[in-house]
Design a protein around this nucleic acid. Structure first.
Length: 553
DNA sequence: GTCGGAAATA
DNA sequence: TATTTCCGAC
């Protein structure tokens, strides 16, 4: 799958990230996205709401949730039994786990998942928000799902147009987003009903508010995630009004940033280099988002605090913190000369750690030349199931480490291994540790572990922020590729690294994905300009297509 | 209520 | 691939 809108910006992301399915606003919304969507809307608080611990939510009205889900998926026969089965599948993926002893209560493994991808997500909009919910968890990588579908784009567009406003119409639409069959076929009636009920529930403010984490000052949040790498640079003031319609306050859509105002994006224009490395998606740089991450001390401070809190909340081991400082924004080794300078600015916020980053301090990669404390690394695409299986077998046979790496850390380890694999095995923490730390509430860790070891890596870790998983002792590995990476263009480097990994991992699919990435990267540079220009047209196109997509069930 | 295997589905 | 569907077990 390729992002039709902007090939340049997503070079660094794993293939899966670009799949429409991974995109919150996409037509093929995934259940967890949907749940998140409901959770952040006040209208549905009677049906499902955050409760208890950070990331924990209760389905107050299972039937209703099922109905909504069924409506969204155009599965009128949906019921809680089925929905819950789908939820249970998330256990293995580590997207969620069950809170034992509490009926209809589940908990997101935000640390690995949502936070990273949706740093802005509202964990408890207001009431009942788990204090523990780390508002800015990972901050991570700024990774955002690229807008894959026109619908997403549309939503983003709408956000711009009517930010924060909830007219009845708006609400309806919002609702529609939640449970919309798109073409309004059979499920509409239900939707309508719900809408009516919901309408009164929350005003615009609420919706708005809900976007922000309860404890995080808006300012800090926005800033934190802002895309302006340079503190000194002017930040686009525009603050985005998160749209209630979209599940995520800031949609990752390129549409928002890349499409709408690509040129404006600070990241792009101002810091070409960094943006390559650390700005995975256009959204980050998008001005409209207004949420640009800045690395200035204040922001960093906020960010760190938030993150720290979240870590503690998760019962993560302090080790996690150790890595923060190490996180570095990946400096794209762009052949470009400017890069170094830009790199400095980015101190990374303690970013997130997320999948895209690596924790290696020394990473040798690049960034290190600079004092900048943070480094980012790109995470390789998650292994596919095929790979998993294959990998497991391979791993078992080929390397001891592989098993662990594959299973457990997907992100962190993978990253390490792939990107900076000096030493072939980078392993780090035993899975058990990790899990215990991560899954604070998980009841069946043991079970999880077993299963997860295999599955986990692939899927669960996909979302996992590296930081959390970061091994206490990151492999210091080989920061630099044998070939004197520094001089080598980013593209080549990645390619080489990946190639290496591939060889080691022998992964067919993955390879392809990686190759694509590589290409994307390459293209990126070449096309970047074009893409920006293209963006507007793309947007239009996307919008136009929206109608088509909406017709579906 | 919850779990998870198995097969079907798109 | 991500559920959806069905269902037996605890």
């Amino acid at each position: 799958y390729k992002n039709p809108y902007d090939t340049t910006l997503w070079f660094a992301f794993p293939e899966w990230a670009y799949k429409p399915e991974s995109s919150p606003g996409s037509r093929q919304i995934q259940l967890w996205h949907f749940i998140l969507e409901l959770l952040r809307k006040e209208e549905y608080h009677d049906v499902i709401a955050w409760q208890g611990d950070y990331g924990e939510f209760v389905i107050k009205d299972p039937d209703e949730v099922a109905r909504l889900w069924g409506a969204r998926k155009c599965k009128p026969q949906m019921n809680y039994d089925k929905l819950s089965r789908a939820l249970r599948y998330y256990y293995n993926k580590r997207i969620l786990h069950k809170t034992k002893g509490k009926r209809f209560t589940y908990k997101f493994n935000f640390n690995k998942l949502v936070l990273v991808n949706y740093p802005f997500i509202d964990m408890g909009s207001g009431r009942g928000v788990p204090q523990s919910a780390p508002p800015v968890p990972s901050g991570g990588t700024h990774f955002r799902f690229p807008p894959s579908t026109p619908s997403e784009v549309l939503s983003s567009t709408e956000e711009l147009r009517s930010p924060g406003m909830f007219s009845s119409v708006g609400r309806r639409m919002a609702r529609g987003s939640v449970s919309d069959c798109s073409d309004g076929t059979s499920t509409n009636s239900e939707l309508e009903e719900a809408v009516g009920a919901e309408d009164r529930v929350g005003g615009p403010e609420r919706a708005f508010r809900s976007l922000l984490p309860p404890r995080m000052p808006h300012e800090s949040l926005f800033r934190v995630y802002g895309g302006a790498p340079n503190p000194g640079l002017p930040r686009p003031a525009p603050r985005v009004h998160p749209e209630p319609l979209s599940p995520f306050p800031i949609s990752p859509l390129p549409g928002s940033g890349g499409l709408l105002a690509p040129t404006l994006s600070p990241a792009l224009s101002m810091t070409p280099t960094p943006h390559l490395s650390y700005t995975p998606s256009p959204s980050m740089s998008s001005p409209m988002l207004g949420s640009h991450f800045s690395f200035n001390p204040e922001d960093m401070k906020h960010y760190l605090q938030a993150h720290t809190q979240s870590v503690y909340n998760y019962h993560l081991s302090p080790r996690a913190f150790l890595h923060y400082p190490n996180i570095v924004i990946p400096q794209p080794h762009r052949p470009t000369p400017e890069k170094p300078a830009a790199a400095h600015h980015l101190h990374g916020p303690p970013m997130p750690l997320s999948h895209s980053l690596s924790q290696q301090p020394g990473g040798g990669e690049e960034g290190h030349q600079h004092p900048s404390p943070f480094k980012f690394k790109l995470q390789p695409p998650p292994l596919g199931r095929k790979q998993r299986e294959a990998g497991s077998s391979m791993a078992a046979s080929s390397s001891s480490s592989s098993s662990q790496s594959s299973s457990f850390t997907g992100s962190s380890q993978m990253t390490n291994s792939l990107l900076s694999r000096g030493p072939p095995n980078i392993k780090v923490e035993p899975i058990s540790d990790i899990e215990s730390e991560e899954d604070v509430e998980v009841t069946d860790i043991s079970e999880d572990d077993e299963k997860n070891h295999n599955d986990e890596d692939n899927e669960g870790d996909i979302f996992t922020p590296t930081v959390f998983k970061t091994p206490a002792t990151p492999p210091i590995a080989a920061p630099i590729s044998p070939g004197g990476t520094r001089c080598i263009p980013l593209k080549l480097r990645f390619k080489r690294r990946w190639s290496k990994d591939q060889k080691m991992e022998a992964d067919g699919e993955r390879d392809e994905a990686e190759d694509k990435k590589v290409r994307a990267e390459g293209e990126e540079e070449a096309e970047r300009r074009g893409s920006e220009r293209r963006a507007s047209s793309e947007l239009q196109r996307a919008t136009a297509q929206l109608s088509l997509e909406n017709s579906g069930c």
